[in-house]
């Protein structure tokens, strides 16, 4: 999926938010407490991704990220995951009818790995495929 930075992919959207199901894709290092944490080995990073089930409870999520604490302090999202992964806020908007719904799954990664080639050629296409296979109409991205 080589693309020049100059040509920016852009999919026009004609739908209203009330008709759209939203998915979260985040590089903030969020994962289920029961999933394997992302690697904090700063020399290697971590090119893997995690699928977060749509019915997850915010309290079952945590954050592991290799970035130095002075750059990305994970204390805030560990206290309230909605700081970087706004699952409860999206559900509130869905129950108020402001958005159509919340997707049946979400995708998270750390987005930091020495093996950039692996991220670009393996991880990112796999994440895009997860989104395409889902029922999501649009994606909200966060980075931490």
């Amino acid at each position: 999926m080589e693309m020049s930075r100059k040509a920016i992919p852009y999919t026009p959207n004609t739908r209203a938010l009330q008709e759209m199901t939203l998915m979260i894709v985040s590089t903030s290092g969020v994962h289920l407490t029961e999933q394997e944490p992302f690697s904090t080995d700063t020399a290697q990073g971590d090119a893997s991704y995690r699928i977060i089930p749509g019915d997850v409870q915010a309290s079952d999520l945590t954050v592991t990220h290799a970035a130095p604490k002075e750059h990305y302090n994970t204390d805030a999202p560990k206290e309230d995951i909605n700081c970087v992964f706004p699952i409860d806020r999206l559900r509130e908007l869905a129950s108020e009818g402001i958005i159509g719904g919340v997707a049946e799954k979400h995708v998270t990664m750390m987005g930091y790995a020495m093996r950039l080639k692996q991220i670009n050629e393996v991880t990112i296409p796999a994440v895009a495929k997860e989104v395409v296979r889902s029922k999501a109409d649009a994606v909200l991205l966060t980075a931490g």
């Binding site: 693309m3 290092g29 987005g111």
Partner: peptide
């Protein structure tokens, strides 16, 4: 780093025909 990679992910999703929107705190990297 994560504020740069996130845009690569965003672009890959958008290129598949799914609209995306990003919240970034690092304007330079993103």
């Amino acid at each position: 780093m994560c504020h740069r990679t996130v845009v690569t992910v965003q672009r890959a999703i958008e290129a598949q025909g799914i609209p995306t929107t990003l919240i970034t705190l690092d304007v330079e990297q993103s």
